[in-house]
């Protein structure tokens, strides 16, 4: 579960707030769009989740783990549980499709055999098995983004974070990328998509968190992109988001009730390097 608890964030002590008192929860297995105009704070939200930045006030929790208290050397282990997809794909141009995906597993020290098995599997999932020897510049934009998604998925992250994944793609490719993300979500991965692709949001009708000037404008399930009530199918107050957990038993989401995970549980997370490995193998 991802929780933003009264987050305020300024990039410099006297700079205007990029995020202001932002609170919401995303349950495991949800599919959420974060929308807002450029400069509204979407990217800041992503940076907070990946620990690239720390909030000025408030706390971000991922599975009960308070990110501001996470030691710097543990940040890489957190990132292994978050798959990142970028607008500009961010593939390494000198590596082949296979190598681009495989190196995310090499970082973890995975064996050659398991890398080969897993990479082939995710490349099949994204439909690029036949192009695994190609270099990124030999691929279309849509195909490159599929490689980006394959790389994000190869370590079985619990969260997939996509920052404008269809920003550089035509409608047809965007459609197939979103279908892919939806399929990943159906398999239990929490998917958070930051976007201002209006058509996409309207067509998918998923939960929408809209941010404007760093504040939460609305948090609605099965919503449309547009601003104003006439576009909304239904509105939920921000404090009680209605979630669509895929196969998630509400009773297990204990921390959500109290807002604070049990102390001993959190301590365990902080002290153990192996936490992320263990969770992955769970």
């Amino acid at each position: 579960m991802i929780e933003f608890d009264h987050i305020s964030m300024a990039y410099a002590p006297k700079a205007p707030l990029a995020l202001s008192d932002l609170s919401f929860r995303i349950q495991d297995g949800e599919f959420v769009f974060v929308i807002g105009q450029s400069g509204s704070g979407k990217s800041t939200l992503v940076k907070l989740l990946t620990c690239e930045e720390k909030p000025s006030a408030g706390e971000v929790y991922i599975d009960g783990l308070a990110l501001t208290q996470l030691k710097r050397r543990l940040v890489p282990y957190l990132r292994r549980s978050i798959g990142m997809v970028f607008q500009d794909f961010r593939l390494i141009p000198t590596k082949t499709v296979y190598e681009n995906v495989a190196f995310a597993m090499e970082i973890l020290g995975a064996s050659r055999r398991s890398i080969s098995r897993q990479v082939s599997m995710v490349l099949s999932t994204v439909g690029l098995r036949s192009r695994e020897r190609a270099l990124p510049n030999e691929l279309s934009g849509g195909e490159q983004q599929r490689v980006g998604i394959a790389r994000a998925m190869v370590n079985n992250p619990s969260i997939l974070l996509a920052d404008e994944p269809t920003g550089n793609l035509d409608p047809v490719n965007s459609e197939s990328i979103m279908a892919l993300l939806e399929e990943i979500n159906r398999n239990g991965t929490t998917v958070v998509v930051c976007t201002h692709d209006r058509e996409m949001v309207d067509r998918m009708q998923k939960r929408v968190i809209e941010i404007a000037d760093g504040r939460l404008l609305r948090d609605a399930t099965r919503a449309l992109y547009g601003s104003g009530d006439k576009y909304l199918l239904d509105i939920e107050p921000a404090a009680v988001p209605v979630s669509e957990p895929a196969g998630q038993d509400q009773a297990t989401a204990q921390p959500a009730e109290t807002g604070q995970p049990p102390q001993n549980h959190r301590d365990k997370l902080f002290t153990s390097y192996d936490y992320y490995y263990k969770r992955k193998s769970r």
Partner: peptide, 15 residues
């Protein structure tokens, strides 16, 4: 750029 990507994928500094 490559280092940046490696960081996002979860590479440690030592790696």
């Amino acid at each position: 750029e490559e280092i940046n990507i490696m960081k996002y994928v979860g590479a440690t500094n030592a790696y």
